[in-house]
């Protein structure tokens, strides 16, 4: 396991409100870290700071050796990011969209086609590759977003609610994809669904009111509660925050 992600005292305030409060952790390849927390806990904001979309009020994130404050462009080049809701240009086809992203990521000609082809294959969106994204189901849209984040085969993947709003079959597909990639990558996902942590994560961090209140393997967290129920731990640590 190589350490590829380290977060130092990451903090974000909007006005007087502190949304993310001094988050510290490190993660390496082979880890799937699940940010777990109620809505509005600061999971997305933390991710947005790691990928260089929002500037932290304090602290920083280092991704693959690049400091996001000093060299945001290197971080953006190194990381794969799926924003919440998997936004994509609705008038484009997945093929055109992925081709655009691959171009911006620096691929040209045959290399570009190959990258796009591989991402389409990994996320199984072949059937809809030539249809406007506008017309796709939620599940397919999410997979187009995932394909976009995988194009450059990044070591660090940040996925904001990758399965939110999907039906059980679609969830299954996305989870399998995450598990398949877990070995050689460092993946951070956010979710408010507890079963997801059990299904894909090797480590869970419970975040509430911008603070990390629990950090450990799903099994560790379960052991904290008498009943071995993740739900109970979640309720316990988030209730009094």
């Amino acid at each position: 396991m190589t350490q590829v992600l380290s977060i130092h005292g990451l903090t974000k305030s909007f006005g007087h409100e502190t949304v993310v409060d001094n988050v510290n952790f490190t993660a390496g390849t082979g880890e799937v870290v699940g940010f777990l927390g109620p809505n509005g806990a600061g999971k997305s904001t933390t991710m947005k700071m790691i990928v260089g979309f929002l500037t932290p009020s304090a602290g920083t994130a280092v991704v693959c050796g690049h400091d996001v404050l000093r060299d945001p462009r290197a971080v953006k080049a190194a990381v794969g990011y799926l924003p919440e809701g998997a936004p994509a240009y609705p008038d484009m086809t997945p093929l055109g969209f992925l081709s655009f992203i691959a171009g911006v990521r620096g691929y040209d000609g045959a290399d570009r086609r190959e990258r796009v082809e591989r991402a389409i294959e990994m996320t199984r969106i072949h059937d809809v590759a030539r249809q406007p994204i506008d017309t796709l189901s939620k599940g397919y849209k999410r997979r187009v977003g995932l394909a976009q984040s995988l194009l450059h085969d990044p070591t660090v993947l940040i996925l904001d609610e990758p399965t939110d709003g999907l039906d059980p079959n679609q969830k299954q597909v996305v989870r399998e994809l995450i598990r398949d990639m877990a070995q050689e990558k460092c993946i951070v996902i956010s979710t408010h669904i507890l079963e997801e942590v059990d299904a894909v994560c090797s480590r869970a961090m419970i975040i509430t009111s911008g603070k990390v209140v629990a950090d450990g393997s799903p099994a560790d967290l379960k052991a904290q509660s008498g009943s071995g129920d993740l739900d109970e731990v979640f309720r316990k640590v988030t209730a009094n925050a």
């Binding site: 979309f53 462009r73 080049a77 924003p83 994509a88 240009y89 992203i101």
Partner: peptide, 14 residues
């Protein structure tokens, strides 16, 4: 509105 601004500005692009 589409949220693609987040996508665009997290690509390696100035």
């Amino acid at each position: 509105r589409l949220g693609t601004i987040e996508l665009l500005l997290t690509l390696p692009i100035s």
